[in-house]
Protein backbone atom coordinates (compact mmCIF):
# COMPACT_ATOMS: atom_id res chain seq x y z
CA UNK A 1 0.00 0.00 0.00
CA UNK A 2 1.11 3.54 -0.67
CA UNK A 3 2.29 5.67 2.25
CA UNK A 4 -0.45 8.00 3.43
CA UNK A 5 -1.04 11.54 2.24
CA UNK A 6 -3.93 13.97 1.94
CA UNK A 7 -5.61 14.52 -1.40
CA UNK A 8 -6.90 17.66 -3.06
CA UNK A 9 -8.53 18.05 -6.43
CA UNK A 10 -8.75 21.77 -7.13
CA UNK A 11 -11.06 23.16 -9.80
CA UNK A 12 -8.84 25.99 -11.02
CA UNK A 13 -5.17 26.53 -11.87
CA UNK A 14 -4.92 29.25 -9.22
CA UNK A 15 -6.25 26.90 -6.58
CA UNK A 16 -3.86 24.16 -7.78
CA UNK A 17 -0.91 26.55 -7.48
CA UNK A 18 -2.04 27.49 -3.99
CA UNK A 19 -2.18 23.85 -2.89
CA UNK A 20 0.97 22.99 -4.82
CA UNK A 21 2.94 25.64 -2.95
CA UNK A 22 2.38 24.15 0.48
CA UNK A 23 5.21 22.19 2.07
CA UNK A 24 5.37 18.55 1.03
CA UNK A 25 2.83 18.94 -1.79
CA UNK A 26 3.30 17.06 -5.06
CA UNK A 27 1.36 17.49 -8.29
CA UNK A 28 -0.56 14.54 -9.79
CA UNK A 29 -1.23 14.71 -13.54
CA UNK A 30 -1.69 11.16 -14.89
CA UNK A 31 -0.03 9.80 -11.76
CA UNK A 32 1.79 6.95 -13.48
CA UNK A 33 5.25 8.17 -12.52
CA UNK A 34 4.22 9.76 -9.22
CA UNK A 35 2.60 6.64 -7.76
CA UNK A 36 5.66 4.55 -8.66
CA UNK A 37 7.97 7.05 -6.96
CA UNK A 38 5.81 7.20 -3.81
CA UNK A 39 5.53 3.42 -3.64
CA UNK A 40 9.31 2.99 -4.03
CA UNK A 41 10.03 5.75 -1.51
CA UNK A 42 12.01 7.81 -4.03
CA UNK A 43 10.43 10.82 -2.37
CA UNK A 44 7.46 11.34 -0.08
CA UNK A 45 4.36 13.51 -0.19
CA UNK A 46 2.29 15.09 2.54
CA UNK A 47 -0.31 16.21 0.05
CA UNK A 48 -1.15 14.99 -3.45
CA UNK A 49 -2.65 17.76 -5.57
CA UNK A 50 -4.58 16.21 -8.43
CA UNK A 51 -4.76 18.24 -11.62
CA UNK A 52 -7.49 16.07 -13.12
CA UNK A 53 -10.19 18.66 -12.45
CA UNK A 54 -8.45 21.26 -14.62
CA UNK A 55 -10.31 20.83 -17.92
CA UNK A 56 -8.66 23.94 -19.38
CA UNK A 57 -5.32 22.12 -19.41
CA UNK A 58 -6.63 19.40 -21.73
CA UNK A 59 -6.84 19.43 -25.48
CA UNK A 60 -5.07 20.58 -28.62
CA UNK A 61 -5.81 23.83 -30.45
CA UNK A 62 -4.21 26.03 -33.11
CA UNK A 63 -2.30 29.13 -32.04
CA UNK A 64 -2.42 32.54 -33.73
CA UNK A 65 1.06 32.15 -35.22
CA UNK A 66 0.07 28.96 -37.06
CA UNK A 67 1.46 26.59 -34.45
CA UNK A 68 -0.27 24.35 -31.97
CA UNK A 69 -1.03 24.51 -28.26
CA UNK A 70 -1.10 21.19 -26.46
CA UNK A 71 -2.58 21.39 -22.96
CA UNK A 72 -0.24 19.79 -20.43
CA UNK A 73 -2.92 17.31 -19.33
CA UNK A 74 -3.50 15.97 -22.85
CA UNK A 75 -2.83 12.23 -22.66
CA UNK A 76 -0.08 10.59 -24.69
CA UNK A 77 -2.83 8.70 -26.53
CA UNK A 78 -4.44 12.05 -27.32
CA UNK A 79 -1.13 13.42 -28.67
CA UNK A 80 -0.35 10.26 -30.67
CA UNK A 81 -3.78 10.09 -32.29
CA UNK A 82 -4.30 13.77 -33.11
CA UNK A 83 -4.51 14.10 -36.92
CA UNK A 84 -2.76 17.51 -37.05
CA UNK A 85 0.12 16.31 -34.90
CA UNK A 86 0.41 13.09 -36.91
CA UNK A 87 0.57 15.05 -40.16
CA UNK A 88 2.61 18.12 -39.29
CA UNK A 89 4.52 17.10 -36.17
CA UNK A 90 5.03 13.44 -37.04
CA UNK A 91 8.07 13.09 -34.80
CA UNK A 92 5.95 13.99 -31.77
CA UNK A 93 3.08 11.64 -32.66
CA UNK A 94 5.58 8.81 -33.15
CA UNK A 95 7.39 9.60 -29.89
CA UNK A 96 4.12 9.67 -27.92
CA UNK A 97 2.98 6.41 -29.53
CA UNK A 98 6.28 4.72 -28.63
CA UNK A 99 6.16 5.64 -24.94
CA UNK A 100 5.16 3.08 -22.30
CA UNK A 101 2.12 0.84 -22.90
CA UNK A 102 -1.41 1.54 -24.19
CA UNK A 103 -2.82 1.70 -20.66
CA UNK A 104 -0.13 4.12 -19.47
CA UNK A 105 -0.56 6.28 -22.58
CA UNK A 106 -4.29 6.50 -21.85
CA UNK A 107 -3.46 7.85 -18.41
CA UNK A 108 -0.09 9.59 -18.73
CA UNK A 109 0.01 13.19 -19.93
CA UNK A 110 2.40 15.15 -22.13
CA UNK A 111 3.22 17.49 -19.22
CA UNK A 112 3.89 14.56 -16.93
CA UNK A 113 5.94 12.77 -19.56
CA UNK A 114 8.46 15.58 -19.83
CA UNK A 115 8.56 16.04 -16.03
CA UNK A 116 8.95 12.36 -15.08
CA UNK A 117 11.80 11.35 -12.81
CA UNK A 118 14.75 9.22 -14.01
CA UNK A 119 14.56 5.43 -14.15
CA UNK A 120 18.11 4.81 -12.86
CA UNK A 121 17.71 1.76 -10.61
CA UNK A 122 19.91 3.23 -7.92
CA UNK A 123 17.78 6.38 -7.86
CA UNK A 124 14.59 4.28 -7.80
CA UNK A 125 16.02 1.81 -5.32
CA UNK A 126 17.15 1.98 -1.72
CA UNK A 127 20.38 3.80 -2.48
CA UNK A 128 20.84 7.27 -1.05
CA UNK A 129 22.46 8.54 -4.22
CA UNK A 130 23.64 12.01 -5.22
CA UNK A 131 20.32 12.83 -6.89
CA UNK A 132 18.52 12.04 -3.65
CA UNK A 133 20.87 14.20 -1.59
CA UNK A 134 23.51 11.55 -0.82
CA UNK A 135 27.18 11.71 -1.68
CA UNK A 136 27.71 8.82 -4.14
CA UNK A 137 26.61 7.87 -7.63
CA UNK A 138 26.32 4.09 -7.39
CA UNK A 139 26.11 3.72 -11.17
CA UNK A 140 29.76 4.70 -11.71
CA UNK A 141 31.12 1.44 -10.27
CA UNK A 142 27.86 -0.46 -10.59
CA UNK A 143 25.43 -1.81 -13.17
CA UNK A 144 25.50 1.01 -15.68
CA UNK A 145 24.21 -0.69 -18.84
CA UNK A 146 21.36 1.80 -19.21
CA UNK A 147 23.15 4.96 -18.13
CA UNK A 148 24.33 7.96 -20.11
CA UNK A 149 27.19 8.35 -22.59
CA UNK A 150 26.82 12.13 -22.92
CA UNK A 151 26.45 14.92 -20.37
CA UNK A 152 27.13 12.93 -17.20
CA UNK A 153 29.14 14.45 -14.38
CA UNK A 154 28.77 13.13 -10.88
CA UNK A 155 25.43 11.54 -11.82
CA UNK A 156 24.87 9.40 -14.93
CA UNK A 157 21.11 9.13 -15.39
CA UNK A 158 19.41 9.25 -18.77
CA UNK A 159 16.30 11.32 -19.24
CA UNK A 160 13.49 8.78 -19.71
CA UNK A 161 11.10 10.83 -21.88
CA UNK A 162 10.43 10.04 -25.54
CA UNK A 163 8.35 13.13 -26.18
CA UNK A 164 10.93 15.59 -24.77
CA UNK A 165 13.52 15.02 -27.53
CA UNK A 166 10.76 15.25 -30.16
CA UNK A 167 9.59 18.55 -28.67
CA UNK A 168 13.14 19.85 -28.56
CA UNK A 169 13.76 18.88 -32.19
CA UNK A 170 10.59 20.79 -33.13
CA UNK A 171 11.70 23.91 -31.24
CA UNK A 172 8.76 23.73 -28.80
CA UNK A 173 8.31 25.77 -25.63
CA UNK A 174 6.54 25.14 -22.36
CA UNK A 175 4.31 27.55 -20.52
CA UNK A 176 4.91 27.49 -16.77
CA UNK A 177 2.52 28.95 -14.21
CA UNK A 178 3.24 29.92 -10.63
CA UNK A 179 1.54 32.09 -8.03
CA UNK A 180 3.65 35.03 -9.15
CA UNK A 181 2.66 34.78 -12.82
CA UNK A 182 3.61 32.70 -15.80
CA UNK A 183 6.59 32.34 -18.09
CA UNK A 184 7.38 30.63 -21.39
CA UNK A 185 10.60 28.65 -21.64
CA UNK A 186 12.03 26.97 -24.74
CA UNK A 187 12.31 23.20 -24.21
CA UNK A 188 15.95 23.61 -25.19
CA UNK A 189 16.63 25.39 -21.89
CA UNK A 190 13.96 23.64 -19.76
CA UNK A 191 16.08 20.59 -18.97
CA UNK A 192 19.13 20.60 -16.72
CA UNK A 193 22.31 18.54 -16.62
CA UNK A 194 23.78 17.21 -13.36
CA UNK A 195 26.40 19.95 -13.69
CA UNK A 196 23.56 22.52 -13.53
CA UNK A 197 21.72 20.87 -10.63
CA UNK A 198 22.34 17.32 -9.53
CA UNK A 199 18.92 16.90 -7.90
CA UNK A 200 16.63 18.26 -10.60
CA UNK A 201 16.04 17.29 -14.24
CA UNK A 202 14.40 20.59 -15.21
CA UNK A 203 14.20 24.16 -14.03
CA UNK A 204 10.73 23.95 -12.44
CA UNK A 205 10.77 25.55 -9.02
CA UNK A 206 8.62 24.18 -6.20
CA UNK A 207 5.07 25.42 -6.71
CA UNK A 208 5.45 25.79 -10.48
CA UNK A 209 3.26 23.93 -12.95
CA UNK A 210 3.66 23.24 -16.69
CA UNK A 211 0.32 24.30 -18.19
CA UNK A 212 0.90 23.88 -21.91
CA UNK A 213 3.31 22.89 -24.61
CA UNK A 214 3.60 25.27 -27.56
CA UNK A 215 4.61 23.99 -30.97
CA UNK A 216 5.86 26.53 -33.53
CA UNK A 217 4.51 26.46 -37.10
CA UNK A 218 6.30 23.99 -39.35
CA UNK A 219 7.90 25.06 -42.63
CA UNK A 220 6.47 23.34 -45.67
CA UNK A 221 8.57 20.41 -46.81
CA UNK A 222 9.57 19.54 -43.24
CA UNK A 223 10.09 15.86 -42.63
CA UNK A 224 10.32 14.44 -39.18
CA UNK A 225 10.68 11.06 -37.57
CA UNK A 226 11.24 9.46 -34.14
CA UNK A 227 13.15 6.21 -34.04
CA UNK A 228 13.48 4.33 -30.75
CA UNK A 229 15.51 1.26 -29.86
CA UNK A 230 14.37 -0.83 -26.89
CA UNK A 231 15.62 -3.97 -25.20
CA UNK A 232 12.37 -5.67 -26.22
CA UNK A 233 9.87 -5.16 -29.03
CA UNK A 234 7.36 -3.15 -27.03
CA UNK A 235 6.72 -1.33 -23.76
CA UNK A 236 10.13 -0.22 -22.62
CA UNK A 237 12.22 2.87 -22.19
CA UNK A 238 14.65 3.85 -24.94
CA UNK A 239 18.14 2.38 -24.91
CA UNK A 240 18.67 5.11 -27.46
CA UNK A 241 16.39 7.09 -29.72
CA UNK A 242 16.57 9.85 -32.30
CA UNK A 243 14.15 12.67 -33.01
CA UNK A 244 15.02 14.12 -36.42
CA UNK A 245 13.40 17.17 -38.03
CA UNK A 246 14.82 18.10 -41.42
CA UNK A 247 13.83 20.62 -44.07
CA UNK A 248 15.07 19.87 -47.54
CA UNK A 249 13.40 22.15 -50.12
CA UNK A 250 15.67 21.00 -52.96
CA UNK A 251 18.58 18.59 -53.12
CA UNK A 252 20.29 19.77 -50.00
CA UNK A 253 19.35 19.99 -46.36
CA UNK A 254 18.38 23.49 -45.29
CA UNK A 255 17.86 22.92 -41.57
CA UNK A 256 18.47 19.86 -39.43
CA UNK A 257 17.49 19.20 -35.85
CA UNK A 258 18.82 15.95 -34.39
CA UNK A 259 18.00 15.24 -30.74
CA UNK A 260 18.85 11.95 -29.03
CA UNK A 261 16.93 10.18 -26.26
CA UNK A 262 18.14 7.57 -23.81
CA UNK A 263 21.79 8.61 -23.88
CA UNK A 264 22.07 11.73 -21.70
CA UNK A 265 20.57 13.25 -18.53
CA UNK A 266 18.50 15.50 -20.80
CA UNK A 267 17.38 15.33 -24.44
CA UNK A 268 20.73 15.52 -26.22
CA UNK A 269 21.17 17.72 -29.26
CA UNK A 270 23.75 16.18 -31.59
CA UNK A 271 25.08 19.61 -32.54
CA UNK A 272 28.14 18.45 -34.50
CA UNK A 273 25.98 16.06 -36.51
CA UNK A 274 23.52 18.86 -37.28
CA UNK A 275 26.45 20.99 -38.46
CA UNK A 276 27.66 18.23 -40.77
CA UNK A 277 24.16 17.81 -42.23
CA UNK A 278 23.09 21.42 -42.69
CA UNK A 279 23.65 22.68 -46.22
CA UNK A 280 24.82 19.29 -47.47
CA UNK A 281 23.29 16.90 -49.99
CA UNK A 282 21.82 13.90 -48.23
CA UNK A 283 24.11 11.33 -49.87
CA UNK A 284 26.24 8.46 -48.58
CA UNK A 285 29.25 10.69 -47.99
CA UNK A 286 27.27 13.19 -45.93
CA UNK A 287 25.59 10.43 -43.95
CA UNK A 288 28.98 8.93 -43.08
CA UNK A 289 30.20 12.33 -41.86
CA UNK A 290 27.03 12.91 -39.83
CA UNK A 291 27.23 9.44 -38.29
CA UNK A 292 30.83 10.03 -37.18
CA UNK A 293 29.93 13.46 -35.78
CA UNK A 294 26.91 12.13 -33.89
CA UNK A 295 29.02 10.39 -31.26
CA UNK A 296 31.62 13.12 -30.87
CA UNK A 297 32.31 13.58 -27.16
CA UNK A 298 30.68 10.31 -26.08
CA UNK A 299 32.12 9.01 -22.80
CA UNK A 300 30.73 5.53 -22.13
CA UNK A 301 30.87 3.87 -18.73
CA UNK A 302 31.99 0.29 -18.19
CA UNK A 303 28.85 -1.45 -19.48
CA UNK A 304 27.17 0.98 -21.89
CA UNK A 305 29.68 1.27 -24.72
CA UNK A 306 27.12 -0.41 -26.99
CA UNK A 307 25.13 2.85 -26.94
CA UNK A 308 27.85 4.50 -29.06
CA UNK A 309 27.29 1.96 -31.82
CA UNK A 310 23.54 2.24 -31.30
CA UNK A 311 23.58 6.01 -31.85
CA UNK A 312 25.67 5.60 -34.99
CA UNK A 313 23.27 2.99 -36.34
CA UNK A 314 20.19 5.04 -35.46
CA UNK A 315 21.63 8.07 -37.18
CA UNK A 316 22.55 6.13 -40.32
CA UNK A 317 19.20 4.32 -40.60
CA UNK A 318 17.16 7.43 -39.95
CA UNK A 319 19.03 9.60 -42.46
CA UNK A 320 18.87 6.91 -45.12
CA UNK A 321 15.12 6.71 -44.63
CA UNK A 322 14.84 10.50 -45.00
CA UNK A 323 17.06 10.63 -48.12
Amino acid sequence: MLPNFTYERPGSVDEALEHGSSEGAVLHAGGTDLLGCLRDGVFSAKKVVSLSGLEELRGISPTRDGGLRVGALTTLTGVASDPTIAERYTVLAQAAASAASPQLRNQGTIGGNICQRPRCWYFRGDWHCLRKGGDTCYAIAGENHFHCIFGGSGCYIVHPSDTAPALQALGASVRIASRSGSRTVPIESFFLLPADDIQRENLLEPGELVTEVLLPPVASGTRSVYRKVRDRGAWDFALAGLAAVVTMPGDSVETASLVLSGVAPKPWRAAEAEGALTGARLDAETIARVVAASVAGALPLEHNGYKVALVRGLMEETLRALA
Binding site: Y7, G31, L35, G36, D40, Q103, N106, Q107
Partner: peptide, 26 residues
Protein backbone atom coordinates in the same frame (compact mmCIF):
# COMPACT_ATOMS: atom_id res chain seq x y z
CA UNK B 1 1.85 -3.20 -8.36
CA UNK B 2 4.01 -0.93 -10.51
CA UNK B 3 2.20 -0.51 -13.81
CA UNK B 4 4.19 -3.06 -15.74
CA UNK B 5 2.23 -6.32 -16.02
CA UNK B 6 -1.36 -5.32 -16.83
CA UNK B 7 -3.08 -7.93 -14.61
CA UNK B 8 -5.07 -5.13 -12.95
CA UNK B 9 -6.35 -3.58 -16.21
CA UNK B 10 -9.87 -2.15 -16.06
CA UNK B 11 -11.78 0.29 -18.24
CA UNK B 12 -12.34 3.83 -17.00
CA UNK B 13 -14.93 5.56 -19.18
CA UNK B 14 -14.39 2.76 -21.68
CA UNK B 15 -10.61 3.21 -21.89
CA UNK B 16 -8.13 0.64 -20.51
CA UNK B 17 -5.83 1.64 -17.69
CA UNK B 18 -3.95 0.04 -14.81
CA UNK B 19 -6.02 0.12 -11.63
CA UNK B 20 -2.84 -0.30 -9.53
CA UNK B 21 -1.56 3.02 -10.86
CA UNK B 22 -4.88 4.83 -10.43
CA UNK B 23 -5.80 6.42 -7.11
CA UNK B 24 -9.37 5.48 -6.24
CA UNK B 25 -9.96 9.19 -5.64
CA UNK B 26 -9.16 9.80 -9.32
Amino acid sequence: ARGECGACSVLMDGVPRYSCMTLAAE
